[in-house]
Computed example of a mutant assay.
Amino acid sequence: MLVFVYGTLTEPERVERLLGNGPGAYEFRGDAVLEGFHRVDGRYPTLVPGGHVEGRLLAVDDSALERLDRYEGVDRGLYARVSVPDMEQRSVQVYVGDPARLGLERDASWPDAPSFRVAVRTALERSNAVLRRTE
């Protein structure tokens, strides 16, 4: 499975500390750009609708993906993991942090929704977000 990373997980040393000494295989697969969202920084980096963000592709197996979910706080609602298509219409996973949980004011460009996860999915659909490899 491919994961688009744009913050701390673009650092090979951090990924090695997180995934290298336990179950789960991973490999960096080059640079990419996510169109339709841009990075903002709070306590941790996250994405908001509009623009684009540069990052890297990380290939992981199911065990490594579970470890990434724990690292990103998916079970605590800190980040939501969503799927974005790449240019070949393959699904790439992306973590999007809840601005309110990361010390940012909730950006007015997020759609009104019953939950942050639903707002992210709605924004993805409206933006026609796509991931483009740059290598």
Rank of each mutant, 00 (worst) to 15 (best):
A32N: 03
D31W: 12
E13H: 08
D41K: 10
G103I: 13
A113S: 13
A32H: 06
V53P: 08
R106N: 07
V118H: 04
V130P: 09
L2P: 01
E66S: 01
M87D: 11
P111T: 11
V48H: 00
L131Q: 08
L78Y: 08
V15E: 00
R101P: 03
L104D: 03
R117Y: 10
D61F: 07
Q93R: 14
G36V: 10
G77W: 02
E135V: 15
H38E: 10
L34Y: 06
A123D: 01
V33C: 08
L124Q: 04
T122R: 14
R90D: 15
Q93N: 11
V120P: 02
L68V: 00
G24P: 07
A32M: 07
R14L: 15
R117N: 09
R121A: 05
T8N: 07
Y6T: 04
E88T: 11
E125N: 04
A123H: 06
L78S: 02
P23A: 09
G50R: 05
L131M: 09
M87E: 14
V84S: 02
G55N: 07
R56F: 12
L102I: 11
R121V: 10
V130C: 14
N21D: 06
A100K: 07
V96I: 14
L104Y: 06
A80E: 14
R101W: 10
R17V: 04
F116G: 03
R14P: 05
T8P: 05
E72D: 01
Y71I: 02
A80M: 04
Q89K: 13
F116K: 03
V53F: 10
G24Q: 12
S63M: 03
G73A: 02
D69T: 00
Y6V: 09
V5D: 02
R117K: 10
V82G: 04
G55K: 04
D75G: 07
D112N: 08
D75K: 07
G22R: 10
G7M: 06
R81P: 00
M1T: 12
E135F: 13
L9H: 08
R67S: 02
V15I: 07
G42F: 06
L9F: 12
T122Q: 14
D41C: 08
G55Q: 06
T134Y: 15
V82S: 02
